[in-house]
Design a protein around this nucleic acid. Structure first.
Length: 422
RNA sequence: CCGGCGGUGGCGGAGUGGCCAAUCGCACUUGACUGUAAAUCAAGCGGGCAUGUCCCUGCGCAGGUUCGAAUCCUGCCCGCCGGA
């Protein structure tokens, strides 16, 4: 892998670059669509290419479960297996430590919407209540009691229970040890161990161009001590990932540290000091978008300029210009593909919920400013009909449009950096 | 015309004397979703407002029995099936 910076913005930290791999090169900054199970859900690889995707990211954990890396390897590796003749990344499984662990237990994502969202919503509390018997005491303090729950106003949007995750807490369905993580397969419940060595071996068999170190993605409810301990583990795992990585692949080390400045900086300095080919910035980003950019800046200031920086799992449309301006080269996000399957289209004037009945009478394209195939040939009315009829074509059309829209959006930003407008 | 079965919320369909404004599914409405356990999940869904352990109306229509009826009885209307 080779990374060349073609131009640096004079107005901010944005950079224009070319990332070369043995499967071709991509222009950066670039959006990286998510192909967890070796497919952009609902699309073929050709269709993903037609939607201007340059590079995709697949998932180690999911492909280890199904079909297993041996099968992928026997098929000649991921590129051949999925007929994607362009660059590929694989995520290490570190995100699943969070998403199948505390993320699931608490019904939270990587970013809390606002400080008030520290208060769990009623459905979350109900789900906690259901699990109260098995929930580790330290994981949720205080655990809502039956009586407190009964006293809740029936339609209240949130309640007064504040959750925090502290040292010693373990998620319900997985076990995090110093050596790695015991997962319980969501498919059949069997136990699966993944540590840095296992992740590297799986990723080597999968054969993506760029792979990531195994890490723990810390939850936004984690306190300082938990995040600090977790960071030590992630750093230890980073060194082991370097040790066990395949020779042909580029390995990106992952910076963690949660919302805590000293931890983020410490992590960035440590990961930067190692012989990684590039960097991932992971974990949670506090509870507001402003904080997120601030946190990315803490990290990017410590990372060497000449190596690529990938922001893991962030990329709502409104985030994209900001993160690019703070010096991010690549970033992945499920938004375009995930929302497509919820019936949403991203457009130049906002997000459209095509599932709403009013669109049945709307004969305009999704976005008249968009020049994708879907917008040239289909109406909102038709897509709304397909959604209501539960036809999978609706999801294909929306996925295709959304990806084209995101990729074009970033393409325009590259163009603006080129012209010195950004 | 006779006999049998049946008519429950927008639709399908439970319930067969009190725990019933009525299980459940669909449809519909609203909300959520950022390294995808996610073509998913949550809430609402007769009317009213003072949004409540609140008030109205209500299980084809009209009566009746009963402390109490969607549930039992009588008559009528409608549908399906069988027989003339």
């Amino acid at each position: 892998m080779d990374f060349k910076i073609l131009k640096k913005s004079k107005k901010n930290k944005a950079r224009l670059g070319i990332l070369k791999t043995s499967h071709g090169e991509i222009e950066t900054p670039s959006f990286v669509p998510v192909a967890t199970q070796a497919t952009i859900k609902t699309l073929t690889s050709e269709e993903a290419k037609a939607a201007k995707c340059q590079i995709l990211i697949c998932n180690t954990y999911h492909l280890h479960l199904k079909p297993g890396e041996k099968i992928v390897k026997a098929n000649g590796g991921l590129h051949k297996f999925m007929n994607w003749r362009a660059p590929l990344m694989t995520d290490s499984g570190g995100f699943q430590v969070f998403s199948l662990g505390f993320g699931r237990d608490f019904g939270v994502g990587k970013i809390l919407k606002s400080a008030t969202n520290m208060f769990l919503t009623e459905p979350v509390v109900r789900s906690l209540q259901r699990r109260a018997a098995t929930l580790p005491l330290s994981a949720a303090t205080p655990i809502p009691s039956e009586t407190k729950l009964a006293a809740l106003p029936r339609h209240s949007a949130r309640n007064t229970f504040v959750a925090s995750i502290s040292v010693g807490s373990q998620p319900q369905n997985i076990k995090i040890t110093d050596e790695g993580v015991w997962f319980r397969s969501p498919i059949d419940g069997r136990k699966i161990f993944i540590g840095p060595k296992e992740s590297m071996k799986i990723q080597e068999s999968l054969g993506a161009d760029i792979i990531f170190a195994f890490d723990e993605c810390t939850p936004p409810l984690a306190d300082y001590e938990y995040t600090k301990k977790s960071l030590e583990k992630t750093h230890k795992w980073a060194l082991q990932s370097l040790k066990f990585k395949g020779k042909k692949q580029a390995l990106f080390g992952i910076v963690q540290g949660g919302k805590f400045k000293d931890l983020r900086i410490k992590s960035a300095e440590f990961i930067a000091s190692q012989s990684f080919d590039g960097f991932g910035i992971g974990g949670e980003f506090g509870d507001s978008k402003n904080d997120m950019v601030k946190m990315i800046n803490w990290v990017n200031e410590k990372l060497p300029e000449n190596k690529p920086r990938h922001l893991l799992g962030i990329g709502y449309l409104e985030d994209i210009p900001k993160i690019i301006k703070s010096g991010i080269d690549t970033f992945d996000c499920i938004a375009p593909t995930h929302y497509a399957r919820r019936g949403f289209a991203f457009t130049s004037f906002g997000k459209l919920d095509l599932g709403k009945s009013i669109f049945l009478k709307d004969r305009k394209p999704l976005d008249k400013k968009c020049d994708c195939e879907v917008c040239q040939n289909y109406t909102r009315s038709y897509i709304c009909h397909l959604l209501k009829a539960k036809e999978i074509t609706a999801l294909r059309l929306l996925t295709s449009h959304n990806l084209y829209f995101f990729n074009s959006f970033v393409e325009k930003i590259r163009d603006e950096i080129k012209k010195g407008k950004i």
